[in-house]
Design a binder for these strands. Structure first.
Length: 546
RNA sequence: GCUCUCGUAGCUCAAAUGGAUAGAGCAACAGACUUCUAAUCUGUAGGUUAUAGGUUCGAGUCCUAUCGAGAGCGCCA
């Protein structure tokens, strides 16, 4: 990605190359109070005879960039850097234009993955939050991004629902989404318990795969009802997708895919089922022994569909940790079957549990619908402040559900603790929202006193805040490179906390000196811009009052 | 049984690619409101990074072993 530090680190690498050293220069957060960043690449050479010369050259290069205040030599080779606020003031805006990117790189984000007929439940929350955030982050730095919800709209679950409707003689015309949501668990239960039901469901599944017109019509209206309900839900949570493709859209590609793989002897028969001929442990099952398709069958066909109809350089699958074996097999098969050499990555995440660390359940023991979690959070916030508009409470609810999800490293399981996540203090959606509302009000209050910025007059807190704001790019890059939104989420807390210190340290509206006031205004403005852009990257909508 | 992930303060978590004295937030305790919104801020306390070895100038991070936790392992997705 483009940012103001890149040119510098590139030319610093050149300095190392002059001594035959291949070093990727890394800026890291400073460990020493009073400094902002440090460069540690020199340390490992501090016993070499060229150390002094190299260090001098490096320092000279840094100094001529103006990004930092003059750097001093360090015996060990730790270069401590302080940002040059005056220079950066003219060169950093923390808006998207700072990161304009010329490389064309297209990423497909495969996330969400709800099944039709089933309501969104808490298990969907992380893929939606992480997926949206990564989509926004990559979009923010200028990458071409495409999202695909990858609907579970085919296969056994659908067959089970249709079998149930048939058995209970439920008319399609009378069916609505809330009914559908009740039907699925019942159908799934019958499938397990009742052999007759199971046989019929498998039959229907096969008929569907063979394009039975009557059944396809039923399937289509069930899908329509389901998508409508999903879209209404997403409206509440602020999610949207570029593509609403599903397993059914690639179904017709599978027979030919299987045929060709068989012909090339990439897959072979084993106990009637088809497995990959690749030498793996465990073996990769491609179709069942009755010829019907599996998770990996559709995922493989999806690759073919996407490279033909969408085109991409990378695909990110934002899916649960527990499916890592599936993706290992999928990615390995893509190469082995010679589909393409593009980049595919499983962006895995841990399970969301309740505050006791147990899987989220309703009181009755079923999977908890996402709408229920939303309602509980909404009510909790409303109790804290019942003067607010419903729309703001709703936005705050989303902030809490999103921020608490993104503040933790995605790889580990985490506990959803309502009381903790709605706390006014601490790393919560409420706190970061409050901070930016404060900034907005402050700007409204002193707007009339605004004057041109001639010089920056900064106290210690101002400097600390300003430095942190100029480091937006650092955290953005970390989140983008590692596909980990928590770096940005934590950054949002840090700048919010520093802003609150800044706000409390001095009564800004009473400042007489116009240069000093302008400095404060500038910082407040930059904070607001940064905070709102970070929120955008995380998928949080800033509220206007609270 | 095999494979993978993880173990950091009382609790929940940071510390990307190995870098200087391991940081935050809660909770606890002590302070600051006739407010630019105190839904805030300040301070105190809290650590042998599970254990034992190893690699390195340098290890929470890499390697090996042990203990502990979780997940996955051909006809679900």
């Amino acid at each position: 990605m483009n940012n103001i530090f890149n040119n510098l680190t590139t030319s610093l690498s050149e300095e190392f190359k002059k001594f035959d050293l291949d070093e990727a220069i890394q800026l890291s957060m400073s460990k020493i109070a009073g400094y902002d960043l440090q460069i540690n690449n020199l340390v490992k050479y501090n016993k070499s005879d060229f150390f002094d010369v190299l260090q001098e050259n490096v320092i000279e290069t840094i100094n001529s960039s103006n990004i930092f205040l003059p750097v001093e030599k360090n015996e060990m080779g730790f270069l401590n850097l302080s940002l040059n606020h005056i220079y950066l003031m003219k060169n950093i805006t923390n808006t998207q234009s700072d990161f304009e990117n010329e490389q064309s790189n297209k990423i497909i984000f495969d996330y969400g993955g709800p099944n039709i007929g089933k309501p969104l439940h808490v298990g969907h929350m992380r893929t939606l939050n992480i997926g949206r955030s990564l989509y926004n982050i990559h979009s923010f730095i200028g990458t071409e991004v495409v999202s695909d919800i990858h609907l579970g709209d085919w296969g056994m679950p659908i067959a089970q629902i249709i079998t149930y409707l048939e058995k209970e003689k439920i008319e399609l015309e009378s069916l609505d989404s809330s009914q559908l949501e009740v039907i699925y668990p019942k159908a799934s239960e019958e499938y397990k318990q009742n052999n007759e039901f199971k046989t019929r469901a498998q039959e229907i599944n096969k008929l569907l795969n063979n394009n039975d017109q009557e059944l396809l019509k039923m399937w289509e209206s069930i899908k329509g009802i389901s998508i409508q309900s999903l879209k209404e839900n997403f409206e509440i949570f602020g999610h949207s997708f570029d593509y609403w493709l599903g397993e059914s859209d690639v179904n017709n590609l599978i027979p030919k895919m299987i045929e060709e793989l068989l012909k090339d002897e990439k897959i072979i028969y084993d106990d009637g089922a088809l497995i990959s001929a690749e030498d793996t442990d465990p073996k990769i099952l491609i179709t069942k022994s009755d010829g019907s398709y599996l998770y990996i069958t559709t995922d493989l066909a999806t690759i073919l569909f996407r490279q033909k109809n969408i085109g991409y350089d990378k695909t990110f699958y934002i899916v649960d940790n527990r499916q890592s074996l599936h993706f290992e097999q999928l990615f390995s098969s893509i190469k082995y079957f010679e589909f393409n050499n593009l980049e595919h990555e499983h962006i895995s995440y841990g399970t969301l549990n309740d505050s006791d660390g147990n899987p989220f359940k309703t009181r009755e023991g079923g999977t908890k619908p996402l709408s229920e979690l939303f309602k509980e959070t909404y009510d909790y916030i409303e109790k804290i402040n019942n003067d607010l508009d419903k729309s703001i409470v709703s936005q705050l609810t989303n902030s809490v559900l999103t921020y608490s999800d993104l503040i933790t490293n995605r790889k580990t399981d985490y506990k959803f603790d309502l009381e903790k996540f709605t706390n006014v203090n601490g790393k919560t959606g409420i706190y970061v929202q409050y901070s930016q509302v404060r900034a907005k009000k402050l700007l409204e209050n002193i707007a009339t006193k605004h004057s041109e910025l001639n010089d920056l007059i900064l106290n210690d807190v101002d400097k600390e805040l300003l430095s942190k704001l100029y480091l937006f790019t650092y955290f953005l890059e970390q989140s983008a490179v590692l596909n980990e939104p928590h770096h940005l989420a934590n950054y949002l807390y840090e700048i919010s906390n520093l802003f609150n210190q800044f706000y409390e340290s001095e009564k800004i509206s009473e400042i007489e000196d116009s240069d000093q006031l302008s400095s404060k205004m500038y910082i407040t403005n930059l904070f607001l811009t940064t905070s709102q852009n970070v929120m955008w990257c995380l998928g949080i909508t800033p509220v206007n009052q609270m």
